[in-house]
Design a protein around this nucleic acid. Structure first.
Length: 577
RNA sequence: GGGUCUAUAGCUCAGUUGGAUAGAGCAACAGCCUUCUAAGCUGUGGGUCGGAGGUUCGAGUCCCCCUAGGCUCGCCA
């Protein structure tokens, strides 16, 4: 039952205000002892020409505000506070969660609309470091969130697989390439020769000329160059895919820059036909004064294309192919202006769907002391970070396993460590607002206490353990709709139920703002509420059989919520740890 | 210099269209395992919300100015 809506209707009846307006005014009090909903009377003060506290006092006495599900209606200063009957709340919230299972929070808001999410998009032949992890983790989470809300999601990996750097790689590979090393560790070898190229290039301008010629031959489709390019691309993809598999990240396609390169001329023609192209300082540009943005370069003065033209071609292709309702780019904040320009050009060219394109930016990953730079070797590979986190998790598990009667086998411990370790890393990226820079520190990444994934997974596993024990002793939770759920009315139970009830809303909020942290924050609150309850009340040794079963139901609801929420963040749960 | 974002507890961060006593986690200190997993829980200390002004019943939140910092500003992506 929608309590808020019902309360709004009742207040509307008394005051004569629009129900929708009242609904928007109703808020959730900052403290739980102030009730479940509150109606502030400030807005009525002007209309009724009375002081808000007086209005509140009068409202409270109205018969219209007497409902079965309300245990109390109280005026506090200018507010009218509504208290939902705890048993009633427990019954309605738990019934809903129990019937939804792992799907708790799912919605059909998306209505089968199509949402394209471009994310990860690493450069071929370059190492995948902790900076790339941000777009990968964020995009993966957003994809899952939109799917949960009923969207048809298309995951796109816009690979950096084209451009003059491939001319350089071809030149470098022919001079210094080591076939064996390439087979064993493609990215390392490609990076080695790429770095060497840049060193040698300083003293040998011929290399630059050769690299340009090679890229030209690649663009012209010369067999040898294309074959080499393809080889580099395929080998890099194998490496990336291993990482994606490990993280549970999937893509619907890997159409990178190379895929769109032959679609650019049509875009240039289109812009020219619409008289949008101007010559400026030798380049072909689209002026964007009316969008308060600098000109967007479409063709360089040498007539070649640039990344803006590629992104234009990609957007148009995507619209024609998918007729998307949302086209989201999960790319770092430094590219904010670039996307503003691209979207503005589309708009200027008359594509109304340009309004459905959105740049979802995120902060930089930095070191506390000094910059993050590939050149200085000041870099942490994502794989190293994951391994480190898994290893540390494993040590903790081994230690705990000794104290818990060696229930786990070596293999199980390895498997748990993998999931929890990865979860710990993923969580650090989605625990706060995406636009903030992340200061990378091993210490924080490997801290498993407090607001962390291990804490959440631990809470889940601990609860699963209780459910297993209950089952073994023939004790079953109540099912959805069982009136006995109403016995849950203690302070801790009530607090937990309230936080569980807020979970679905956190998903739609997260989607609206493209901010997964709104979900991580919610489930973190759920876990904390549960642990408080857990430490205060015994579940399997509760006073009555009925209370035991009702509390087991509460456990099950917590599990459903945590599992669903963590899944939306891209984190797996484990049954024991 | 133009654009843009940020500034909240010692540290890392929340704070919804202006609303009730500005909240979490970490760190510090003091407690809690013969009881369902202590990766847990309880308590304590810690704040002129960068600074000044303005708007109003009311400002961490909105407007203006200032200070500090990040990112960015046509032929790299």
């Amino acid at each position: 039952m929608d309590y808020k809506n019902d309360i709004a209707n009742r207040i509307a009846k008394i005051t004569g205000l629009e129900a929708q307006n009242v609904y928007n005014l109703i808020e959730i009090p900052p403290q739980t002892d102030m009730g479940d909903y509150a109606f502030p009377c400030f807005a009525l003060a002007k209309v009724l020409r009375k002081a808000p506290p007086m209005i509140a006092a009068e409202l409270v006495n109205s018969d219209e505000l007497k409902a079965d599900y309300l245990s109390e209606v109280k005026n506090v200063g200018p507010y009218v506070n509504f208290y939902i009957d705890r048993g009633e709340l427990a019954y309605s919230v738990l019934s809903q969660i129990l019937s939804s299972g792992d799907a708790y929070g799912a919605d059909s808001l998306g209505d089968c609309k199509t949402a394209i999410i471009e994310f990860s998009s690493p450069n071929i032949a370059k190492p995948f470091h902790v900076g790339h992890a941000f777009t990968t983790i964020l995009g993966n989470s957003l994809a899952r969130i939109y799917e949960k809300l009923g969207y048809n999601v298309v995951r796109m990996n816009h690979l950096g697989d084209y451009g003059t750097q491939f001319g350089k790689l071809i030149t470098a590979y022919r001079l210094w390439g080591d076939e064996k090393a390439l087979e064993e560790s493609p990215i390392d070898e490609l990076l080695r020769i790429y770095v060497k190229f840049h060193e040698e290039e300083k003293n040998n301008p011929d290399l630059t000329t050769d690299a340009r010629a090679n890229f030209k031959r690649l663009e012209d489709g010369c067999e040898e160059e294309v074959a080499l390019w393809k080889k580099f691309r395929d080998m890099s993809l194998v490496v990336f895919n291993k990482l994606y598999d490990r993280m549970g990240v999937t893509f619907d396609n890997y159409n990178g820059e190379s895929f769109y390169s032959d679609k650019i001329p049509a875009v240039v023609d289109m812009l020219r036909e619409k008289n949008l192209l101007e010559e400026s300082e030798g380049a072909q540009v689209v002026m964007l004064d009316e969008f308060k943005a600098p000109p967007c370069i479409i063709l360089k003065s040498d007539g070649t294309t640039i990344y803006a033209s590629r992104d234009l071609a990609a957007a148009i292709y995507r619209y024609n192919e998918y007729k998307f309702d949302k086209n989201i780019y999960v790319v770092g904040i430094p590219q904010a202006l670039h996307f503003k320009q691209v979207f503005s050009v589309l708009k200027k060219a008359g594509y109304e769907w340009a309004d459905n394109c959105e740049h979802v930016g995120f902060g930089l990953v930095k070191f506390k002391d000094g910059k993050f730079s590939t050149r200085d070797g000041n870099i942490v590979l994502l794989e190293d970070l994951l391994n480190e986190a898994v290893e540390k998790t494993y040590e903790v598990i081994v230690e705990n396993n000794k104290n818990r009667g060696n229930e786990l086998t070596e293999e199980e411990m390895r498997e748990i460590a993998e999931k929890v370790g990865l979860g710990a890393v993923v969580y650090t990226y989605v625990k706060s607002g995406r636009e903030r820079d992340i200061f990378f520190s091993w210490e924080e990444m490997l801290d498993f206490e407090g607001d962390t994934a291990p804490y959440l997974i631990y809470t889940y596993a601990r609860t699963r353990s209780i459910l297993r024990k209950a089952k073994a002793s023939g004790l079953a939770p109540f099912e959805s709709g069982d009136e006995a759920l109403k016995v849950l009315s203690s302070e801790e139970e009530y607090q937990l139920i309230r936080t569980l009830a807020d979970f679905p809303e956190s998903i739609s909020k997260a989607a609206n703002a493209n901010e997964p942290f709104m979900i991580s924050r919610q489930i973190s609150t759920c876990a904390r509420s549960f642990n408080r309850f857990y430490n205060n009340s015994s579940i399997l040794n509760a006073e009555t059989e009925e209370l035991k079963r009702a509390r087991l139901s509460l456990c099950e609801c917590l599990c459903n919520t945590l599992k669903s929420g963590l899944n939306l963040l891209g984190i797996d749960v484990v049954e024991r740890m």
